[in-house]
Structures are given as structure tokens and as C-alpha cells.
């Protein structure tokens, strides 16, 4: 860089901020890290406690009840392949990672979405931030995440939350905004208070859209598993990553296919959950 050339020091500022946060909030981060680690270990422990074959049958039954016979056959065959290929434990690990990050995204995203939808000014403020979170390359989050939470599964989860949280928030806002103004007027005409309007009309009618957001959130966090594995998260992503670094084409595909099977299963199940309440009706 030439001397005397003025450059806005974004990099330096962020470096300093990250350092400051790391020093001052380390105890909070440690606690958070421990909590997430324990959650994941617990889920993995419980799921590995069940015999894989029993679990496959349970999943098939769930697919049959919620989706269709075909989906249950797919589940049966798909998960049997996973077991046969020897990816059962990585699959469970990936599932727990996705599960925890989606739960956290829901717990944060839906309230933020609801609050933003109620205040126009606030949503003007949140939407650009969400765009920023979604479009910023996910790798960028990994580095500070390592500083805050050290290597392991937690920075991976944090990165995938940052990446998938916006879809929950955005679709919650959209769902609530999409409620027809005629129906809102009906609510007003009966003298509903703001919270009654929200919980009895707006949120129930927004539910299909909110569920679509959760579905997207699951897909996005699944897409993050490979990136998460770069900071040490175990699971299918780690398998893919190892295959890539060792140029094992076949192995890479194997692990990739397992991710696809898991993704299809989770996608179809959550898609069905979103419309199960009032079946074909209720669409306006």
C-alpha cells in the first residue's frame, strides 16, 4: 500500500472488536459452549442407545404417518443403506448438530420475526442485517467463531445458526404480513387486543409460512455441515472433508449421498408438518 493513501480500516476495527469480545466475554462463551456440547452429546447418546434397526423402523413409521407409503419405503431403504455403508454414527452426529442449531434458530428467529412484524421501523432495521448475514460468505464467520468457542462442534453450530437464522426470521415476518387485511379487520371489529390479534389470528394464519421458514432453516444448516467440519465438527461433513483432502472420490460421494438421504427425509417430514393442521383447506 502506498504511503499516505487513506484506507477505511474495517479489518483493523473488526480484529480489535473480536479481540475485545474474546477477552471480556470469555466466561459467557465458555458456558454457552459447554451447554451446547452437552446438548449434542446427550442427543447422540440417546440416539445411539437405540438399536439402529429399531430406529430405522421408527423413522419409517413416522414417514408413513406424516407423509406417505412411498416416503416410508424410501426411509426404510435409505437409512438401511446408511447403516450398511457404515455411516450410522456420523449421520447421528450430523443430525444432532442440525437439530440443535435449528432449535436455537427457531427459539431466536420466531420471536425476533414476530416483534419485527409488529414494528415497521424495526423491520426496516432488521431486514438489511438479515441480508447481510445471509450473503456474507459463511467461512468468514468461522474464524471469529473459533476465537470465541475454540475448535469443535460449537463454532460450527454458531456459523450455521448465523447462516440459517435469517430464513426463519424473514418467513415469520412475511407470514404475518401476508395475513389478509380483511381478516385483520374482522379481528379489530370484535375488539381484539393487540396480543389477541397476534396469537389468535396472525400467528396461526402465518403458521404455514413460518413452517416453510423452519424447513429452509433445516436445509441451510444441513448445507453447512461440511463447512462446520473444517473447524472440527464431527459427522458426515468431516467424512466429506476428509475425502476431499485425500482425493478419495468414491468415499466423498458415499458421504455425500448419506447427506442427501438425511436431507430428503428431514425436508419431506417438515414440509408435511406445515400443512398438517388444516389439510387442503384454509388457504385463502
Amino acid at each position: 500500500m502506498e504511503k499516505g493513501h487513506f484506507k477505511i480500516s474495517i479489518a483493523d476495527t473488526i480484529d480489535q472488536t473480536v479481540e475485545w469480545i474474546t477477552i471480556n466475554f470469555s466466561s459467557i462463551f465458555d458456558r454457552f459452549s459447554l451447554l451446547i456440547d452437552n446438548c449434542i452429546n446427550l442427543i447422540i447418546y440417546v440416539l445411539t442407545l437405540i438399536n439402529p434397526i429399531v430406529l430405522i423402523i421408527i423413522l419409517s413409521i413416522i414417514a408413513y404417518i406424516l407423509v406417505s407409503v412411498y416416503m416410508s419405503i424410501f426411509t426404510l431403504i435409505g437409512f438401511s443403506i446408511i447403516l450398511n455403508l457404515g455411516y450410522w454414527l456420523p449421520m447421528i452426529e450430523t443430525f444432532s448438530l442440525v437439530f440443535v442449531s435449528v432449535i436455537i434458530s427457531i427459539l431466536l428467529g420466531i420471536p425476533i420475526g414476530i416483534i419485527s412484524s409488529q414494528h415497521k421501523q424495526l423491520s426496516k432495521f432488521t431486514l438489511p442485517i438479515l441480508d447481510f448475514m445471509q450473503t456474507m460468505p459463511a467461512f468468514v464467520y468461522l474464524i471469529p467463531a473459533i476465537f470465541f468457542f475454540s475448535i469443535g462442534v460449537v463454532p460450527g453450530i454458531v456459523a450455521s445458526i448465523i447462516f440459517s437464522l435469517p430464513s426463519v426470521i424473514k418467513l415469520t415476518i412475511l407470514g404475518i404480513k401476508q395475513v389478509p387485511k380483511e381478516i385483520i379487520e374482522v379481528g379489530h371489529s370484535f375488539g381484539t387486543k393487540t396480543h389477541q390479534l397476534l396469537f389468535k389470528i396472525q400467528i396461526p394464519l402465518a403458521m404455514p409460512t413460518i413452517m416453510a421458514g423452519i424447513n429452509q432453516c433445516i436445509m441451510l444448516s444441513l448445507s453447512m455441515v461440511v463447512i462446520a467440519s473444517m473447524v472440527g465438527a464431527p459427522g458426515l461433513g468431516a467424512e466429506v472433508y476428509r475425502a476431499v483432502t485425500q482425493i478419495e472420490i468414491g468415499k466423498g460421494f458415499e458421504a455425500g449421498i448419506v447427506i442427501v438421504i438425511l436431507a430428503i427425509f428431514l425436508d419431506r417430514i417438515t414440509q408435511k408438518l406445515s400443512i398438517i393442521k388444516w389439510k387442503d383447506g384454509g388457504r385463502l
Partner: peptide, 19 residues
């Protein structure tokens, strides 16, 4: 209170809560 106890309203269409 007026809207709850004094005046109710019937609308032209799509006024029922679909859920």
C-alpha cells in the same frame, strides 16, 4: 369494549378464520 359488547359486524366475504 364497545366493539366487544355493543357492535358486531358481518362482512362481505373471507371473514371467517380459516384455521
Amino acid at each position: 369494549t364497545i366493539r366487544q359488547k355493543k357492535i358486531s359486524m358481518v362482512f362481505q366475504s373471507i371473514s371467517l378464520l380459516p384455521h
